[in-house]
Design a protein around this nucleic acid. Structure first.
Lengths: 152, 152
DNA sequence: ATCGTTGCAAAGCCTTTGCATTCAC
DNA sequence: GTGAATGCAAAGGCTTTGCAACGAT
């Protein structure tokens, strides 16, 4: 599924949610949603704020905060914590899509991966413990060899 | 490796570290270390504080904080963040040991698992992306079937 | 006109640190 | 006695919220 398809789908879902909940369209929300959908991934609130302010300097932190909470509530954004203490937001997974992350500790780049075999093995592990899986988090930390560790 | 072996090994490593670094033995440290080694796992600073204060009411939060930082520095404790905003401490993995976690969202129990196949698949994923792995985090969230979801 | 939204500033939480006092060696 | 350790309270980060002013419908 292309990025355009995903954002179109996200916009649709968001519009439905907002209509259903009586949420209003505002200049600030539009700006924040556009920034989020354009970049689409792994940004912190402050990063989103900085980008949104480039186009609309009047936007405040609390609005970004509340807008992203609304997107999460609408099922359009997912909150992720990678263990640096800040929450990052990424485009929500749709339907049965799912991915996990590879993170370069040197440059901070975040890559996404999917691995069906790992997913299945996880289920098997949980079954051994008698646990019904709701969700999981799998992050692989390392160093980008070509960019960040060319001569290590 | 039994829990007794692991704590004995941890005490030895800690003693060496403290001797090397000129750290002093105090009543408070002893109490905190004992609490940590006895329970051995996944406690927050406030939980450790509460347990330590049962035996020694004079202990303060900052001492627990600094003691656990020292244990981490000594390689005896690992800091883990499970995404609820608090840091938890567990007995450090020794040598090539490694485990990940299953977490019950209902009762909060934390189980440990090891799966060599998953480890290998992770390496393969990272190799596809050209990343040299330093460490990873793999948490499976769910519900304990026997205890927490007997009739769901 | 109504009620949701915004922006600021204040409050919460958890973590970290400065400092005077206390204690291990 | 000297320098490390303690405990308190204050300061830092990030997140969350109260509230008066504003704006969408």
């Amino acid at each position: 599924m292309s990025h355009e398809d995903r954002t179109a789908s996200a916009r649709k879902r968001l519009a439905e949610y907002m209509a259903r909940e009586g949420k209003r369209n505002t200049r600030q929300r539009d700006g924040i949603v556009n920034v989020f959908l354009d970049t689409g991934g792994h940004l912190t609130l402050n990063e989103l704020l900085a980008l949104a302010q480039k186009k609309d300097p009047g936007i405040g932190f609390a609005t970004v905060y509340r807008t992203m909470k609304m997107l999460a509530e609408a099922g359009v954004a997912d909150e992720r914590k990678f263990g640096e203490g800040q929450t990052r937001y990424e485009l929500s997974e749709l339907g049965d899509e799912h991915h996990d992350h590879l993170i370069c500790g040197r440059c901070g780049r975040i890559y996404e991966f999917e691995d069906e075999q790992i997913e299945q093995l996880q289920e098997a592990v949980a079954a051994r413990f008698g646990i019904r899986v709701t969700h999981h988090r799998h992050e692989i930390y390392g160093v980008c060899i070509p960019e960040c560790a060319p001569r290590d």
